[in-house]
Write a protein that binds this DNA or RNA. Structure first.
Lengths: 350, 350
DNA sequence: CTGAAAGCGCTTACAG
DNA sequence: CTGAAAGCGCTTACAG
């Protein structure tokens, strides 16, 4: 059956040159877009490329010394929507600069293997997106700095020595808290935000900033029930917390959540207990995901400004590639945007 | 300042062998885990690796003929949550088999460049996730088949000649429609599901299947207002459609949506017009995303069964790698799971 | 344009 | 264990 006879694929420029009837070096020159070639020759080569599906072996190409024009991206496994948007945006911008990207989606403690893969692939830089195990990422940054490999850490603030671009979560929480204080609130419930989780330390500071500016404090004006439930940081976690708060007498009038899922869950929980949002209690989320719109009432939240974040990261990245290594890390904070929706309102008159 | 003097990174096994004080071939044997080496030698090499951060040049490694043990993944740009879950799950399972993955996140019509990149990187297979431009992906599959490159298409049914794993969306819509018929509904509004979008053809067929089994038909028992709004397929689209439906007299009593966002938007739209869900109208979503829980009432939807899908895809993939090319494409349909929640109920008594 | 040659960084027999 | 050698598939001068 002739339809099943496939010509063996061409595996090298030598073979390919023979097939086109040209010298190996001539083919090579065409493929590298060098000048001084007859148009006819060029066309012959390109047509044969299309016909045979031949493609040069990238491994030989880069072995010969050609830049790989690639960067490695370590992406935290916990794939929430904002992280994914960042990845897509990042790859788009890298492609615009003719860079390819190697992506590894991994557990927060799986960076070692990924980075060594990147190094063996001779990437020109390494990017981390997400929140990784503190010790691990600090080690990786140390290793990369030691060999002078450019790097960026996106959204994991506080890694020693790391070039970092991150949303100013402290500022975000400060603004959110100020918004609530402006509505008359003086007692705050914290949902999933606590000193226990290292990654939320800066948010707690932001809340404190706003409180202290109005002669309030974390100790005196915030309450947490996080210890009552397993830390799932999802809709059900928020719902459970809300039900616990609904059951007590001297309940806070405003609630700040770690993320939108918890916030939406809290709204649901309060309403199931007969409390009106924002009539009786105000609730905020974080991340400004689609589900803020889906919630009833729609959820006040904080936008991550993905586009600005990635733009800053890419700029910072290319300020390192091909330049001498700088010992001082660069740090850029992205200004958050508070989106006020229906879930926050004036404190209820007693 | 000595702290700024970094030793120049070691760039080759030759240099590295000199540094350790061993022969190049000995180092090579250690790195390849060959037998017949003194433990002391092995330890010396491994320790020096750790100290210097040396890693073999992957390009030389694979040029020499070592399998790349890599697959290329083309990922549609339109990054919805289920697609991302698939990506993460896929990469995890590939890693378990010691495969690395090259991922390109791209526009539905950008496959050509990505695939040629994969081929030049000598991947052992190519995977497509998402819905691509019909003509483009058909061309790519043709090219890949011609050179005998294993491939899988996930979630784009109907590509000629393609090895395909996809959720049985026809079956899904049939079951969802049967669920509604069982609740007494006989008049259905379609939100974002129409013949116009090639990608929803199979869902329309599924609805027809269920209707026809009960002496109903698409023509006689379904209505669409899709033509009144720009096709955004998001929350606002659903909300606008619902408001249009709310305004008419002989309104359907059940609504089938293209996705969860539209379904949630429809619920919101109906409620804003004073209609109770599911008291007056029932609404369904598709994809079973987190936001189904956030919606009030919670949204009846269809789960994509990501884990089963990826498992089937990986199995199908490895049934091709290293085996002779088969001319008959393999096709596997994944059985969907209807999740009934609060947004669907008995038809209202007039 | 052609053709022969060197070299990129590896691995893998091979003789010692 | 060492050391010299061949070869993977490319590019890039170089002489013709």
């Amino acid at each position: 059956m002739p339809r099943n006879i496939r010509p063996a694929p061409i595996r090298s420029t030598a073979e390919f040159a023979r097939h086109v009837g040209l010298a190996r070096s001539t083919v090579s020159r065409v493929l590298n877009g060098q000048s001084g070639l007859k148009q006819e020759t060029i066309d012959r080569v390109l047509q044969a490329m299309a016909e045979t599906g031949f493609s040069r072996n990238a491994f030989a190409l880069h072995l010969k010394g050609k830049r790989t024009a690639s960067v490695g991206i370590c992406m935290e496994n916990l794939l929430r929507v904002p992280a994914v948007l960042k990845l897509a945006e990042l790859q788009k911008r890298l492609r615009e600069r003719d860079y390819t990207s190697l992506i590894e989606v991994l557990d927060p403690d799986g960076t070692k293997r990924a980075v060594s893969h990147f190094l063996s692939m001779r990437v020109e830089a390494v990017i981390f997106i997400g929140y990784f195990a503190e010790k691990e990422i600090a080690e990786r940054i140390g290793e990369l700095s030691r060999v002078g490999m450019p790097h960026i850490v996106i959204d994991h603030p506080g890694v020693p020595g790391a070039n970092t671009v991150t949303l100013d979560r402290r500022k975000a929480m400060e603004e959110l808290t100020r918004h609530l204080i402006g509505l008359g609130h003086t007692s705050f419930g914290l949902l999933g935000i606590s000193e226990a989780a290292k990654s939320t330390w800066d948010r707690l500071r932001g809340i404190a900033d706003a409180l202290e500016a109005h002669q309030m404090s974390l100790e005196g004006n915030t309450v947490s029930f996080d210890h009552l439930f397993p830390r799932e940081y999802n809709f059900e976690f928020g719902r459970s917390l809300a039900k616990s708060f609904a059951a007590i007498r001297s309940r806070p009038t405003a609630f700040l959540s770690l993320n939108d899922e918890i916030g939406a869950g809290a709204i649901r929980g309060f309403r199931e207990c007969g409390l009106d949002v924002p009539g009786h209690v105000s609730v905020t989320g974080f991340n400004n995901q689609d589900l803020c719109l889906v919630s009833t009432p729609q959820l006040t939240s904080v936008d991550q400004q993905v586009s600005q974040t990635i733009e800053a990261a890419v700029d910072m990245l290319f300020s390192q590639i091909g330049k001498p290594h700088r010992s001082r890390p660069m740090i850029e904070l992205i200004r958050p945007l508070v989106i006020v929706r229906e879930s926050t309102g004036p404190v209820a008159r007693a």
